[in-house]
């Protein structure tokens, strides 16, 4: 299997006078792999995720996702990249409150110009699998945290991305909802989905990911299989 993510000598510096927020850092993630990025606050986790998602650009180094080098792409190409190759799940869901659940899920497909009928079939399939089919016409504000995160996952998967990026997906959830989402990620990984998970929660990392990369001060401090991490 090839690599979905390839980072080579990546450096990101926000303050020219200060130390880099990230790197120099090199990292690869193989297709079908589930990797958890952990580390304390300010360690560079979100910066790394933003670089992989094409939301930010490195000062130095190369970032390739799914064989496409994205660090030199323009905004339009990056937008296409995001909607075609990756799906994103955020800590605070980032659903649009004035769209119904199904319209939220459909949005990336519609922005990509997919036919509504085909997109609807895919959305229905995802809602069924994720257990939110009965909420299709509801608005996000009326759902529980766990349900909202499931909607966010469905939205992330609507365009069948090669890579799912999850930024603290259980950070805003209670224990029960957190467990639901954890199980969902495990199931997704088992189905073959490549997942990169950013989290503070070591238990989540251990249960969802087969590999954990720990960042400290923008550099990789630990990169090991979870079997090795768990004492």
């Amino acid at each position: 299997m090839g690599n979905v993510i390839e980072l080579e000598g990546v450096v990101k510096q926000y303050d020219s006078a200060g130390a880099p927020a990230l790197g120099p850092l090199s990292l690869t993630v193989a297709e079908g792999e589930a990797v958890a990025i952990t580390g304390p606050s300010g360690s560079g986790k979100s910066t790394l995720l933003n670089l992989v998602a094409g939301l930010d650009k490195p000062g130095e180094g190369r970032v390739s996702v799914g064989g496409l080098r994205i660090d030199g792409l323009g905004e339009k190409a990056l937008a296409r990249f995001r909607r075609e190759r990756i799906g994103m799940v955020f800590q605070f869901f980032n659903l649009l409150d004035d769209l119904t659940v199904v319209d939220n899920i459909l949005l990336p497909a519609q922005l990509a110009g997919s036919a509504r009928g085909r997109a609807m079939e895919r959305a229905a399939e995802l809602m069924e699998v994720l257990g939110i089919a009965k909420h299709g016409r509801a608005y996000p504000g009326r759902l529980s945290g766990g349900e909202r995160q499931r909607v966010a996952v469905a939205r992330a998967l609507i365009n069948r991305p090669a890579l799912l990026l999850a930024d603290e997906p259980t950070g805003a959830l209670d224990t029960a909802s957190g467990n639901e989402v954890r199980q969902l990620l495990v199931d997704l990984h088992r189905s073959g989905q490549t997942v990169v998970l950013v989290t503070h929660d070591l238990a989540l990392a251990e249960s969802c990911a087969e590999r954990t990369v720990q960042l400290v001060d923008g550099n990789i401090a630990v990169d090991r299989r979870n079997a090795e991490v768990v004492r």
Partner: peptide, 15 residues
């Protein structure tokens, strides 16, 4: 923020 969400899920600058 909403525009940021849309951009994160693939809205182009033109859109």
């Amino acid at each position: 923020h909403d525009l940021g969400v849309c951009k994160a899920i693939g809205m182009t600058p033109g859109q």
